[in-house]
Design a protein around this nucleic acid. Structure first.
Lengths: 191, 191, 191, 191
DNA sequence: AATGAATGAGCGTTCATTCAT
DNA sequence: TATGAATGAACGCTCATTCAT
């Protein structure tokens, strides 16, 4: 069934194409017409590939998390000691700053447009959340998954800070500070 | 429907009353009709007190930051050493968890519904940003304001994590972790 | 009952005060708040003197027509021959150009905001219409009232032309042309 | 609801369909819902064809003036002497009385809903004004364009008189009077 | 598979009018 | 008398979604 494969590929391509637009404007501030235009297709075609605006949004979130998995594991290759690994994680984030800031924005948007009950029971959300926790755990070689999740939380704080921020306190500097903080913490308390 | 005597006081009361609603749903997902209903007034009356939905939102942000200033300074009274101050800050956040989570959400919303250029030039934003930085600096007795701002950034990360979070990793525990991290950092690097 | 007389006088004063505003913006484009502000009273007070915006408008139209009667008769004093009378009428219009243009605008507004059936049965309208016809008839000393009415019609055409007009064809010149036309007509056909 | 083939043609058809409604009620007294209903389409569809109520109105004015040009030139064919031409113009107006009355009303409305500065700089207005002047000049074979413009002004006066008028002084009679007046004027003063 | 015209509920906002004071 | 806060229906307009082609 080559047709289905093509169609599936095209759908993912569409998701990638509208990532920037959704991150920049926010779910509620982008119209399906704008999305269609950005994608170079008609509104009708958009609805052919995605049953609703909301589902398009959810699929985008899902797609992003799968992409992150691949990217992050590749980035952590070759770092052996904990400080090296932390540094590698920091460098990885700085390299993809723009992408991760957008992703954080989309993620908050996702949470706010879905009511709490649904979020907590949403398999997409649970899976993605778990995924990031495992990524950090394994990349840094931690023993406590909660610490991994917490580190991801702090990273997101720094990412979100970038939304409305001028250049007076650049992302790189902030990540450096975070790296130092983590290093100091692990030196004192162990992994 | 008694006639309102102190119009200015009533306006602030209205702001406080719609705080929860705006935090929960987000600016773009709340209608002026919903806000009016929540406040127990007509849409016309809402527009009597606030020229537009946007300005209502901005005034809410401003009001919150002024309230925070008072609250935080009161909470930090009596802590003398750095670890005590950090602990006091942590305890303060935990005590008002729900309030600060909502506030963080509103704040992000504010950033996303105002375009970048406007945010950076918006006096409300600049003033509030500055205010938080100074609060942390003075409450913890830090010498480097960037570190203060960074701590506020991390706190926001933890707050935002709470939006769509179940109880498996409670806010108190996360703040404890953050307190430990900060303590370890300051022990190693000084204030 | 001196109180009533005062109140009545005040009401007329209010009507005169809002004439310009209504002429300039048009009935539908002026709010009762704007009228109140212009008059220097509250909206409540406005409704104390006029039961509704529509009735205020109607009373304004009525007041104007009564004022015109007095003005026009005074202006026609002393002209004895027909050409003199026509010239006097022309001069009178040119002297009060601004007032009559505004009046024409208000008048059309009045007709458009009242449905046809109501206009034709409206005593104010009928009376005012009759009044202008008689004014012209008696001022020019005509024998055919229809011709009088027709002249008033033509005058209104010229007045309305002024609404959106630049200065390239001034009101005075147009009235001169009209005067010549009427003179030529009466020379040929008699009064 | 068949798919519309020629979108441009359909737009013009819609303009013609709402001419009566706008003339009868006036711009400010017709809602977009009423217009949509009259046109047999949804409000959404209305906005698909016209970006705003105001632009719909302007396009209507423009469309009318283009239509008039064609109609009037056709009507004036075959009249050779000045009295014949004046009579032809008069007859033409009487034949289309209802249309021209509505048009005059719409025109005044247009002027009143657009502020003076904008009217005088509005290309639609300037062009249309010029067009009518040229039409009269060429149809009557006049040498002075101001006289042509003035005649159009008088005609409009008569047209507007019809708005709130009963049948006691019919349009035809008034146009006859105007024709006589013009004839007398030209006999005395030449073209 | 793809188009884009069409739908209509719902948005932020306005404003004639009322009424407690 | 006079005030102006309050009301709520109605406005111009938007946009997620549908569907004839």
């Amino acid at each position: 069934m080559p047709k289905v494969v093509d169609s599936e590929l095209y759908r993912k391509e569409l998701l990638h194409k509208c990532f920037d637009l959704l991150a920049e404007k926010g779910y509620a501030n982008v119209t399906t017409r704008q999305i269609s235009k950005e994608l170079g297709i008609s509104t009708g075609a958009l609805y052919h590939y995605f049953p609703s605006k909301k589902i398009l949004f959810e699929q985008l979130v899902e797609e992003m998390s799968q992409q992150d998995e691949v990217m992050l594991r590749a980035a952590a290759q070759g770092a052996s000691t904990l400080p090296e690994r932390i540094a590698a994680l920091g460098q990885f984030l700085v390299e993809h700053e723009s992408y991760f800031v957008k992703q954080a924005v989309i993620w908050i948007d996702f949470c706010q447009h879905t009511d709490l009950h649904e979020i907590l029971n949403n398999p997409v959300f649970q899976q993605v959340d778990e995924q990031y926790q495992q990524m950090i755990t394994s990349v840094l070689g931690l023993s406590n998954p909660k610490v991994a999740r917490f580190i991801w939380t702090l990273i997101n704080g720094v990412l979100i800070e970038q939304i409305g921020s001028d250049e007076s306190f650049p992302f790189g500097e902030q990540i450096d500070l975070l790296v130092n903080m983590l290093t100091a913490y692990f030196e004192k308390h162990g992994v």
